Simulated assay, not measured.
Amino acid sequence: MNHFNRLVSEQMVTMEKLLYLQAELERCQQIEAELQNLQNATNLESVQTDIQQMKKELKEIQQIFEKQTEEVINSYLETNLTHSM
């Protein structure tokens, strides 16, 4: 029985190590997932910043386009008015 008890005792120590390592592995995997989420969040912020910048540029270009359209219309009207006189 001594041999049996020693084997069981060794097996219990091994099981404790196994459970500890499993718990540590799960904890590390959780940390890894959180870090990946944080990295994704950082990338998200970067993309959102890019989107805001593009929206600003788009608005500026739209304003320029509208101004150019007005100038084209005014030029057309002026040309037609001078030719019709």
Rank of each mutant, 00 (worst) to 15 (best):
D50T: 12
E57R: 10
E60C: 03
M54V: 11
E16W: 15
S9W: 01
Q52A: 14
F4G: 09
M12E: 13
V72D: 01
L38F: 12
Q48E: 14
V8F: 08
I64T: 03
K55I: 01
Y20L: 10
T49P: 07
R27M: 10
Q68V: 05
V13K: 09
R6H: 10
L21G: 08
T42Q: 10
A23G: 14
Y76V: 03
Q62G: 04
N74V: 03
V47Q: 07
K67G: 04
S84C: 02
I73W: 00
Q62Y: 11
Q52V: 05
L19K: 15
E66K: 13
E16C: 10
E71P: 01
L44T: 11
Q53T: 14
T42E: 02
E26K: 13
L25Q: 15
L38V: 07
T79R: 07
S84G: 07
V72M: 03
N5E: 05
A41W: 04
E26C: 12
T82K: 06
S84P: 05
L58C: 11
A23W: 09
L44H: 02
Y76T: 08
L81C: 00
E16P: 08
N2G: 13
E26N: 13
Q29F: 03
L19S: 10
N2E: 04
S75L: 11
Q22P: 00
K56H: 09
Q48A: 03
H83T: 08
E78G: 03
L7R: 15
E26M: 08
S75R: 07
N2H: 06
E78S: 04
V13L: 12
Q68W: 00
K55L: 06
N2A: 02
Q63P: 03
V8Y: 06
E71Q: 15
L77W: 01
M54L: 14
I73L: 00
Q48P: 02
L58D: 02
I31T: 11
Q52P: 02
N80D: 03
Q68D: 11
V8I: 10
Y76F: 04
I73M: 01
I31F: 08
Q22M: 14
T69V: 00
Q63H: 12
